[in-house]
Write a protein that binds this DNA or RNA. Structure first.
Lengths: 197, 197
DNA sequence: CGGTAGGTATACTGATCTGTGAAGTCAAGC
DNA sequence: GCTTGACTTCACAGATCAGTATACCTACCG
């Protein structure tokens, strides 16, 4: 669970119904086609909400981008926690699987990674991406520590898992192949079942 | 080493001096700011070469993008092979380190990953990206097989290394931190020095 | 001498980009 | 009944987008 500073960064603003429609449509378009490839006119047209409303609610396209990542994190995080709770005997793998299934509908890899590659280094939305990645890492550390007390260095193990996951997501975004992602999952199972290094 | 089919995809076209200037400038801009964020006018202005020449040589911006990735692969691959040859007793790690040092000047992570996240799924340059990733994977398989005969499943091991590397590159592109990349390198050393699973 | 290749300069097209201004509709709440 | 907030319509700004047209220059090569 993210701490309060991270939570402020990761929490999307409260939205009016139309603003929510805009954000939902923008989310799908941003993920599928990329940030720069989608204009506000397109978002407006596809959502059936006026561009004027978009600017009244969000103020700028950059703010829509930021809200997009915040919402994606929040929705995904809740679903992930549900999955973890549903598999109390394999929580680390549940966290892993949450990532895979979340990216599934469009198969464009990790939304946060893709956005990060496209955004200028001083863009406000980068804080959201970093906070999201940090939150995921921390959650992995928590679960490894709690569920695998035989592992000597849970930080190290959690970070290795994060690397495998990030790599697998990135790779699938490029060639749509699950092969490496499954390979990574096997490796995680191996790591967790092994005796301390 | 890529096979001949891959080589055709990965080889950049022969270029006139001005065209090479365009490509060099475009490469830096594309990597630093992203593909969509850089226009042909900017490339032309920064390189001091007219836009007319750009279109006479390349035909379209998409072709410049494709050549950008091809050149990046070719330049990087040669440097990588040099590094591998220079460290005959640690070739897998030399291949790993080649990745890290190549991304260094701008710290925007993996150029191929970033480009892949931004390009439409049917863009011709995607073939370059996939061929590059496949070539790297294959080279890792080669080196693990040759230098670590005690490892039972070199394919599996090479793919785990690729995942760790890809993950580390992606992560550094986002927060500019080498921490996870170094963590991944440690893990690779551990994997290579361990007895067969 | 003449052709060809590589290049320059400049002006232009039509589309698309983010963002704004002005005026008006409609419903809920005080 | 009157204000306030959410929203629409539409026109428009100014910049930038990819890509093209016309005309000219220059060096090399047969």
């Amino acid at each position: 669970m993210p701490d309060s500073a991270e939570e402020a960064i990761l929490t999307p603003p409260t939205l009016t119904p139309r603003a929510q429609r805009i954000l939902d449509v923008a989310s799908e378009l941003f993920y599928r086609r990329g940030l720069h490839a989608v204009g506000v006119d397109t978002i407006s047209a596809e959502s059936g909400v006026t561009k004027r409303t978009l600017y009244d609610r969000f103020g700028s396209k950059d703010a829509v981008i930021e809200a997009y990542l915040q919402q994606r994190h929040t929705v995904w995080w809740a679903r992930m926690e549900r999955r973890i709770a549903a598999q109390p005997d394999a929580r680390v793998l549940a966290l892993w699987d949450a990532h895979i299934q979340d990216a599934e509908p469009f198969d464009r890899g990790c939304a946060f990674l893709n956005a990060g590659g496209e955004l200028p280094v001083d863009h406000p939305a980068l804080r959201v991406i970093r906070a999201h990645k940090a939150a995921v890492r921390d959650r992995f550390v928590d679960l490894v520590t709690a569920d695998h007390p035989d592992i000597a260095d849970p930080d190290r193990t959690a970070e290795v898992i994060v690397l495998l996951l990030e790599g697998g997501m990135a790779h699938r975004g490029i060639d749509g192949d699950d092969h490496l992602l499954r390979r990574g999952r096997d490796e995680v199972e191996r790591i967790l079942s092994a005796a301390p290094a």
